[in-house]
Amino acid sequence: MTRAQRRLHVHLWLVLGPLILIGFFAALGARPRASLWDAFRSDPGAAEAGDVPFHKPEEGGNP
């Protein structure tokens, strides 16, 4: 690599690295306190009452 390319790589990672780490920790920090699916499994009747969605969160949202 040329000197300019080496410097670009270092500067890119100096910016991108912390950004990825901050985004990663922010995403983890935004985790819901309890999984909706866990709530459904512990109390299936609540789904029928409309308290929790009937489908698993990991099943996506295809209407």
Binding site: I20, F24, A27, L28, A30, R31, P32, P57
Partner: peptide, 14 residues
């Protein structure tokens, strides 16, 4: 970077 966020927002939250 996009894939890290894809994993962090999608899978790790569950």
């Amino acid at each position: 970077g996009l894939l890290v966020m894809h994993v962090a927002l999608g899978i790790l939250q569950a």
